[in-house]
Simulated scan of single mutants.
Amino acid sequence: MPSIQKMLFFISSALVTAVSVGLLGYGMSANWATTTIECARSGSGHFNGSAKITMTLFNGTVLRTFCPFGGSDRFDVFPALTTKGGTPIALHGLVLCLLGLCLLFSACTILISLYNSVSNPYETYMGPVGIYTCSSLSACFSFAVLIIFFVNVTVTNMAQDVVMSFAGVVDLGDKSSNMLQGYYFVIPYTVLALFDIALIFLYDHAAYTHRREQQRPTEDAPKEIMMY
């Protein structure tokens, strides 16, 4: 049976990861971004209208004002982006894949932590090494999600493609984008993944120090005593 200290550390690791998964799951269901684009009738050159897109990872709404008419429409992200194809849909698909991998590696972290809390496995991928690996990948992938989604919303023509799919042929001007709560919920997930690594590192370091202290009397003993 593992020691009480080991049980507490690894159960805490599992709880921290479970909380991070809950935060990420909630974030994936919330709104991620809103973008407002100037709009004008084709060829008029006078941007007196606008379109506001609010989107989650899977669907969203478009609120049009004089673009070229008013209206509110709901859309599914992938069908709306498929009409134009290209970089926006590829990056959005990559975001979803990375989030799926984050959840997968978080699940692995929880399983390894619970396994270590009730047993004493060897120092392999089923020990601290496994948690370091899974939590590191979760942190890296979630950080990549933050960058890729931000670039997709602010740099590519994703918002324009969505508007054009409803408004038809119009002239689109400047756009401004804001990230919403779903996007920001990825940040605490990343932080908790790093905290999980630090938590297990503290245990691993303490266990290593304890083993060294137990070995030291034998190492420091005179050779004559060790011969007996």
Rank of each mutant, 00 (worst) to 15 (best):
S119I: 02
L199F: 02
Y122H: 07
F75G: 03
Y203Q: 03
Y183H: 10
A144C: 13
G168W: 08
L63N: 14
T61N: 07
M158S: 10
L194A: 07
M179A: 12
K52R: 14
V62W: 01
A206N: 07
N31L: 05
C39M: 11
N31H: 06
G27Q: 04
G85H: 08
E213W: 13
T54M: 08
S135T: 10
M226K: 15
C39E: 00
H205Q: 14
S113T: 03
T190H: 00
L194R: 02
D73W: 06
F195C: 13
S106F: 02
P188Y: 08
M179E: 09
R41Y: 03
G85A: 14
I197H: 00
H46V: 10
M226A: 14
L202W: 02
Q214K: 08
H210D: 09
V153Q: 06
S117H: 05
D171F: 07
P188I: 12
I4Y: 06
M55K: 04
G173F: 10
F201H: 14
G25V: 07
P88C: 11
V162L: 04
G49V: 01
P2L: 06
C67R: 00
I187C: 09
S165M: 06
I148C: 11
F143T: 08
C67N: 02
N48L: 13
P217T: 12
T36H: 01
A221Y: 03
F58D: 15
Q160N: 15
T65H: 13
E219Q: 12
F47K: 03
C102Q: 01
S12R: 07
M7S: 07
S136N: 12
V191C: 04
M55E: 06
V77W: 00
W32K: 03
T133E: 01
V145G: 01
P121A: 10
S42L: 14
G22E: 05
A198S: 11
L63K: 11
F143Y: 03
Y228N: 13
D196S: 13
F75T: 10
S50Y: 09
A14G: 05
M28R: 06
R212L: 10
N31R: 10
S20M: 05
E219D: 13
M28Q: 09
E123M: 06
Y26Q: 05
F185I: 05
G130Q: 05
I197Q: 03
D220V: 12
P79L: 10
E123I: 08
L94A: 15
K175I: 07
L98Q: 04
H46F: 12
K223V: 14
V169Q: 11
G130S: 14
H46W: 03
F58K: 08
L101S: 12
A198N: 09
C140G: 13
L96P: 01
E123Y: 11
Y122I: 02
V77G: 00
G71H: 11
Q160W: 03
L146W: 08
F141P: 00
K223F: 10
L111Q: 04
G100A: 13
S42A: 15
H92C: 05
